[in-house]
Every structure is written in structure tokens, then in C-alpha cells.
Design a protein around this nucleic acid. Structure first.
Lengths: 252, 252
DNA sequence: TTAAAGGATGACGTAACGAGAAGGTCAACA
DNA sequence: TGTTGACCTTCTCGTTACGTCATCCTTTAA
């Protein structure tokens, strides 16, 4: 079954302009262009569009969708969970705002004046909470508030280039993991290279590196099913192997 | 208390650029400009900014905020209570989004853990896709966009139990078809039982039942080689027989 | 044959700023 | 007194995800 642009547009309930735009940004290319220059879409494109629209419904921006769909190493689940976290944060913010409004209404009714500080307190609290939520309670509990806060600051100040380098490193780690695992030895050169790469990856977001923290994080990976799923997807048992490699690495 | 632009920006947790922009669009003018051309804000502006930010949190565009705030009939109390109501609504919407994403994550995780579930979900999606491809336009034209979308949604949200019941019904239909066909009469009791079962089967995936739609679908079965092959596999000429039985059933 | 429908490619507009250039002002410190 | 650095100014361009023309070409139905 083949579709012209407006046929597909009707099918998916989007505009033809939208499809041309998706073509333009390489998000969804037509299967072929016919002799008159018309865009012709096939089944594969229909499926892909459906995926795209699914993510769009979750408020994911097109650039991110593009990464998700083009990068085979990009874990859909991780992406979904990140997005989930963002939504939770949004809701937390909303809840605080609701509280603030409740307070404000009460104050106004009671004709009690709020100080400027008080008025903006809610917004500031929002920020703090966002930071706390963003980088996980686990790490905060283990390594203290300061680390998290510095980490936040570093992460926010990260350039696009840095972020992309970090992403690339993450991909390399996933690629290296099965190879290192194949050696069967967490002390092998490949496994230690893996641990080294993981350290580098870590330093992108951590304010300072410490062996204990690195080893602790490795333990957390095994204990946390989300991380475990991520690394085990590359190779079954990969998370434990990575942990062992890191433990050897940090005890050197 | 007087504020320079960055003082106010910090207080309200917005950027200086934002305040300059608000000045530019006449949403928030500074109290005065000092001899060096600096913007100086006072208490009135702080209050106004707070109001603006409240509305902004409600996703109200700045143009609308401008109208609201310039309206002399603007009652702060009423406005606040309206904000409040809207915030509650927004939170409800967010909660729905979060629920959806939770379901999706669970579903995706289930794909990894249980291949049964995976097959089921994947098959459902595939069915929807095929259905969309083959009949999307047609059914939309005939019965309207909503029916198709509700149908897809219903199918997606179907429980495993429902799906299995539906599958069972499908098997029964295939078993009943040759027996009914043997009567040679689409109006026979067996044939009408067949049509009734088919209706039940249909209601699993269709949002609402209508005789016309049922009859239309029967016609489509005969016209489409995929369905025809499916029913003819049970008995040669079974598709036409089923169609005739359904027509009689729907004209009762 | 002709008109309508549908396709294509620009190009501009949108909202709410972010980012950066180029330059002026102010307080502090050597 | 000169200089540094923080802070201010205006101006301009870039961003997202398209909507909306304008202009021209192709296909289809009457």
C-alpha cells in the first residue's frame, strides 16, 4: 500500500505541511519520490510515523524523537523513564504552585501582606526541588547534598559539545561491554578499559571523582533494576561484570 | 525598595532578558529610568510581575495576560480563584499523562520480561497498523474519524483476558462456519448464531455497535482477499456465506 | 478541453525569549 | 589615576514546529 502525502496525512491525522517538515528535518523521509516529484510513503513510513506521534503525544520534542528513533543504542525505556521523571517534576511544581495560590488567597483575604521574599519563595522552592529530584535521591543519600548540588551546577553548565561527547562515550561503553564480557575476566585489559571509559563518562557529570564513589555507584547499578536493565540489554550479566571490573579498577 | 533589572530578575527567578522583553511588549514597564538609562523597578512592579508569573504558570500567553491585567474590571480575588481551578485541571491532565507513560513503561518492561505479553502487544499494534493501512480511510469516511480512533484505542487498551476471550470467539466462529454453511441457508438458526457470535466478536474491538457498520464490514470481508482467505480457509465460499448471514442478521 | 484538486518549493510569520556583539556605567582596588 | 570586572544598554539573529500564503506544475474528473 502506498500513500501520497495527503493520504498519509489524513490517515495519521496530521497536516501535509507537517509531513513535509518531517521530511525536511529528516525525521520521516518518504519511501521514494515519483517521476513528478511527489512524495510516496509506504508501510514502513506509516509505522515510523506512528512511533513519532506516540512520542509527540508524550510531549517529547522532535529533536529528541529523532535521536530516539535514529540511534539504535538509544534505549527507548531509558528515554521514556527520563521523560516520566520530567513529568513528575512538572507535577511537583504544579502542586507547589497550587499550595502557593491557596496561601495567597488566604493571605489576601486576611489582608495580610506577604513580603517579596515570601511571594517568590514558592518559585525558589520549585527550583530546589527540581534539582533534588533530577539527580536521584539515592546518590544524595549516599554522597551527600553537596555532591548533588555541585553536580547539578556542572550539568547545567555543560556545553552542547560536552553533552554530545558524553553521549558518545555512553554509546562506546555499551559497545565495549559485550566484548569485555566475552573475555570472562573483569581484570582483563578490555574490562579495565571499560572501567576507565566509565570513569571518564562519570567525570562529565560528577563534580569530582573518587574511587569509593565510583565503586559505590557500581554497586548501585546492580541493585537498581533500571540501571541493571540498561546494561544487561547489551549483554546478559553485563551489569555485574561492569561492577566487578569497576571494583578491580578502583582498587588498583 | 528599588530594584535594578538583575536584582528583580533574581528575586523573581526569571532572566534579565525576560524583563527587558516584558518592557518591550509593554507588559511590565520599569517604575523609572535612571540617569544612566538603567531600568529601576519598585514595589508595584514586583507585585505586577508576580501576577504575570502566576498567569504564565497557567500557560496563558503574554498577549492574553496583557489584556487581563490592563482590564480595570480585573478582580484579583476572582482571578486567583480561577487560576486555582485551572491549576487543578492542569494537574489532572498531567496525572493522566503520567498514567499513560507509566502504563507504557510497564508495557515496555513487560516486553522484556514476558515474551507472551510482548507478542500480544506487538500483535495488537500490528493489527491496528494493518487495519489502518487497509481500511483507515475507508472506515473513516464511512463511519467517521472518531469511530476508528476509538476502535484503535479500545483495542490497545484491551486486557490480556479480553483478548484471549476474543481469540476464543474467533476460533468458535471458524468452527461454526462450516457447520452453518452445511445448512446451505444463511437464514438458518446456525447461520444466525454465527452472525450473532460475529457481532460479539466485533464488540470487543469496536467502540459501539451499529447494524450498518456490521453489514458494511461483511461486504468488506468479501471484497478483501486477506479476510476472504481467512474465512474461506474454514470452508470454500464461507466468506460470502458469512456476509449473507450477517446481512440477514442486521436486517432483522 | 478545461477546471478543480492536489502536488512542489520557497519565504515569511509566530511566541517568548536565549545568546552574543558592541559599547556605556559604576565601584573597587593598586 | 588607571584599570579591572561586574553590570547596564540596544540591536540582531536563532530557536520550535509548524500555519499560511504565493507561485508554479501534475493529475483527475467532467
Amino acid at each position: 500500500m502506498e500513500y501520497t502525502i495527503s493520504k498519509l496525512a489524513k490517515l495519521a491525522n496530521v497536516s501535509a505541511r507537517t509531513l513535509r517538515y518531517y521530511d525536511e528535518i529528516n525525521l520521516l523521509k518518504p519511501a521514494r519520490i515519483n517521476s513528478s516529484g511527489y512524495r510516496i510513503y509506504g508501510q514502513k513510513e506509516v509505522d515510523r510515523l506512528q512511533q513519532i506521534l506516540f512520542f509527540k503525544e508524550l510531549d517529547v520534542d522532535l529533536d529528541t524523537i529523532l535521536s530516539i528513533m535514529n540511534n539504535p543504542n538509544f534505549d527507548k525505556q531509558v528515554a521514556l523513564e527520563n521523560h516520566y521523571k520530567q513529568l513528575i517534576q512538572k507535577r511537583t511544581r504544579l502542586n507547589q504552585l497550587i499550595e502557593t495560590i491557596e496561601k495567597t488567597i488566604k493571605h489576601e483575604k486576611g489582608e495580610i501582606q506577604m513580603s517579596n521574599q515570601e511571594k517568590f519563595e514558592a518559585f525558589k522552592e520549585q527550583l530546589i526541588n527540581e534539582n533534588e529530584e533530577k539527580y536521584g535521591d539515592e546518590i544524595r543519600e549516599k554522597y551527600g547534598k553537596d555532591v548533588v548540588e555541585q553536580s547539578n551546577a556542572k550539568f547545567r553548565g555543560m556545553s552542547k559539545e560536552d553533552y554530545e561527547a558524553m553521549e558518545q562515550l555512553g554509546i562506546e561503553i555499551l559497545e565495549l561491554l559485550p566484548k569485555a564480557f566475552a573475555t570472562g575476566d573483569p581484570a582483563s585489559d578490555l574490562a579495565q578499559e571499560l572501567a576507565e571509559k566509565h570513569k571518564q563518562w562519570l567525570t562529565f557529570s560528577w563534580p569530582s571523582y573518587s574511587k569509593e564513589a565510583h565503586a559505590g555507584l557500581a554497586d548501585m547499578y546492580v541493585a537498581d533494576e533500571r540501571f541493571k536493565a540498561y546494561y544487561d540489554k547489551a549483554i546478559e550479566g553485563g551489569t555485574e561484570f561492569l561492577r566487578d571490573a569497576i571494583h578491580i579498577f578502583t582498587n588498583k
